[in-house]
Design a protein around this nucleic acid. Structure first.
Lengths: 167, 167
DNA sequence: TTTTACGTACAGTTTATTCTGTACAAAGTT
DNA sequence: AACTTTGTACAGAATAAACTGTACGTAAAA
């Protein structure tokens, strides 16, 4: 009886916490996998997670790989255990925020870089424009690019500040 | 010739900027729609966007609705124009960040609330537990819940700070 | 060495998302 | 009034994402 209650509450927590993980950019299935692992507290094998989620081992395997790449989960080793063991970091806030901020910083600097390249390209090409209409169009594009690049720089600044404040 | 070049550069910018918009949680199609609209600079009709993206008007219509809900786009009115006109806000940073932060704050407070309710439920139920194992399990769940709730509160704090710093 | 267990690549299937075309209501035009 | 035009609801089609089962390489166990 009370077994069921705990089971049910556990499920509620997993469901709710999955939503939070989704906010951090995890897909619904990655999120649920992480939630299960986090709530378990200790290391789990692929089979255990497969059992807990009712999904194939293959599916869990790819899911875990994503979480590893995001640095939200790590493989641990335990004496005498042959299967791979995986564990969610205890320090939720730190891990999630770190992973998230880095994802943003990576993406935004990369994108800023791309925009700078485009800007450069536009610069070179627009030298050959004679037609006034084209020159105007190019100049408008140029302005937009400037704004977008500045936008990226602001984002970078914000995320760097969060990072500096909390870690 | 140079027409093509501008065309191409425009397309590069749209593609690159879409990725940024995706970081803010837009789906790929929403992102591209926004990028088109933003880069255009002036108001566009559904038909124009449909043409520009090579998608059906129905598709644009639903896409625009999403962007409206996210408050990233607004409907504008122009004398003598019968069709609906939509425009992306010029102030990228402000709009995106605002939309983003509010999305986070909404979600995280809602989720925190849910967790508190679950905590309450667990509290009530665990009063009836006699079995030691169950009591331990309940207490572990309780601890996890506490951590998660604290996690949400930290997130809230972070996002409120960003909001305060920038607006 | 042979056997068994484990994890993942890959192909195919299932499920979810996105898109299209038709139909229709609301508003504009003649 | 009849006739256009415009936007969206809805159902079905196309596309993308998630999942499964089989197959196989690698490593531990017998």
């Amino acid at each position: 009886m009370s077994e069921n209650h705990l089971e049910e509450i556990n499920n509620l927590i997993v469901t709710e916490f999955s939503k939070t993980a989704e906010m951090f950019g995890l897909s619904p299935s990655e999120a649920r996998l992480f939630a299960i692992l986090y709530l378990e507290g200790s290391a789990m094998t692929l089979d255990q997670m497969s059992e807990a989620l009712g999904k194939s081992k293959t599916s869990i395997s790819t899911g875990i790989r994503s979480l590893l790449e995001l640095n939200l989960v790590e493989r641990v080793w335990k004496k005498g255990v042959r299967k791979d063991l995986y564990m969610a970091d205890e320090n939720l806030y730190k891990k999630f925020m770190n992973s998230y901020i880095h994802k943003w910083l990576n993406a935004t600097t990369r994108q800023e870089h791309s925009l700078l390249e485009i800007q450069d390209k536009l610069n070179k090409e627009s030298k050959f424009f004679k037609d006034d209409a084209k020159i105007d169009e190019a100049s408008e594009l140029y302005d937009k690019l400037k704004v977008m690049i500045a936008f990226h720089q602001l984002i970078e600044k914000s995320f760097k500040e969060i990072h500096a404040n909390y870690f």
